Computed example of a mutant assay.
Amino acid sequence: MQPSDLRVALFSGNYNYVRDGANQALNLLVGHLLSRGVTARVYSPTVARPAFPPTGDLVSVPAVPFPFGRGEYKVARGLPGATRRDLVAFRPNLVHVAAPEWLGHRAVTWARRNGVASVASLHTRFETYPRYYGLTALEPVVEYLLTRFYGRVDRVLVPGQSMADVLAGWGVRTPTSIWSRGIDHARFDPGRRCPEWRRSLGVADGELAVGFLGRLVKEKGLGVFADVATELTRRGVPHRVIVVGEGPAREWFAAKVPGAVFAGFQQGDDLGRAVASMDVLFNPSVTETFGNVTAEAMAAGVPVVAARATGTVDLVEDGVTGVLVPPTDTGAYADAIARIGADPALARAMGQAARARAARQRWDTVGDAVLAAYLETLAARAQARV
């Protein structure tokens, strides 16, 4: 089978209406597939004013706002008749599901009933989310549901070995393939560092700029970040927190870190400038499966201090490209950030090593890896029928 023989139906809970690392990766993937001659069609909830234009053909799926104060996200109401008819007319030979919500479950069920191969990609550790909203008791339930979901497809695409290990630990026996992430190396480059931009935010030349990059939601480890910023201040470590991003927890976070400067949402070359202008990226999130922001900071030659968690452990070499810390160890985080800030030679060496490591992350390479996984999945099904 050739790539031009593929007809891929991609199901996403958020393809382009709110910008995040997962849906940007999906759009880049669809663009890559189309460039290789694959026929692709995307099914996702939509809004009147999306964050960015979609890549490829996008079919809108009816949806309702997500509960628990997160109405910026939408939840599709299964696979309604009109969507199912469009899917039948499209005649996919492979279904790719990017989120384990109702639409994803129904798409997998449709694929199984119609003898169509199915692949799921894992972007977020949803089983960790309940702890950030006072619902820790639900984590085992979510883990059970995720285990069942990933056990129903033909293949799971994981961003790195650490997530493959997590799935195996849950008892998922579905074959896995690695779908890493690429980086725009022209955008994320040390040469984009801008002292004038730092000064415009009120960051003094001798001040350690500790950066946060991402959506401002509690599950990104904002509570731990705030505690560490408080500890750095208590120790008298001269620093300034630079927050790059927006989100519903902005006011909450601003109250927790009163000395922080908020650069807001950045994109394009402005984003590259913001990242390169940090002295250290601090990423305490444990919900990542890859860690796009970590990889982008590394490409920009910025040392990373991060939680020893999935995704990050596949990217950061402890003591070489940055420092990995037990996820809630406030003191250890503060130690690492203070040490990098006090030792310019160490910071420079870590930044150079980080950039060299990030050079491996290329979008065309990782896109071809997904294409190979698709073809391997279809070949395995064909072999099983013999």
Rank of each mutant, 00 (worst) to 15 (best):
G301S: 10
T289Q: 06
V316A: 03
A263R: 03
G291T: 09
F262I: 03
E296A: 13
D329N: 15
E288I: 03
M278K: 08
G319N: 14
R348Y: 00
D314T: 14
A263M: 05
F282Q: 05
A309D: 09
G311I: 12
V304S: 14
A336G: 14
D269Y: 02
A332T: 15
V286A: 05
L271S: 02
D329C: 10
V257C: 06
P326T: 09
L281R: 03
P303D: 06
R308F: 09
G331M: 00
T328M: 07
V313F: 07
T330R: 15
T294N: 11
A332Q: 15
A345G: 02
P258C: 10
A276K: 02
T294R: 04
A345K: 02
S285I: 10
M350G: 03
L324P: 04
G311C: 12
P327S: 09
D270R: 15
G311R: 12
A342T: 04
L315N: 01
E296V: 10
L281H: 04
Q267R: 13
A332V: 13
Q267G: 15
V261S: 10
E317K: 14
V261W: 04
Y333N: 12
P258K: 08
V305S: 08
V320Q: 14
A300W: 07
G301V: 05
Q267H: 07
D279C: 11
V280L: 06
Q266N: 02
G301K: 04
V320M: 11
A334S: 12
G311W: 09
V275E: 08
A309E: 03
A345L: 01
A349W: 00
V275N: 10
G331W: 01
I340N: 04
F290E: 00
G311F: 13
G272E: 10
D335C: 10
G319H: 12
S277A: 07
Y333I: 15
G259Q: 13
A263K: 02
A309V: 08
T287Y: 03
P326V: 02
V286L: 01
M350L: 09
L281T: 09
T310Q: 08
V286P: 00
M350E: 01
S277R: 05
F265W: 15
T321A: 07
P344R: 09
L271P: 03
A342L: 01
L271N: 00
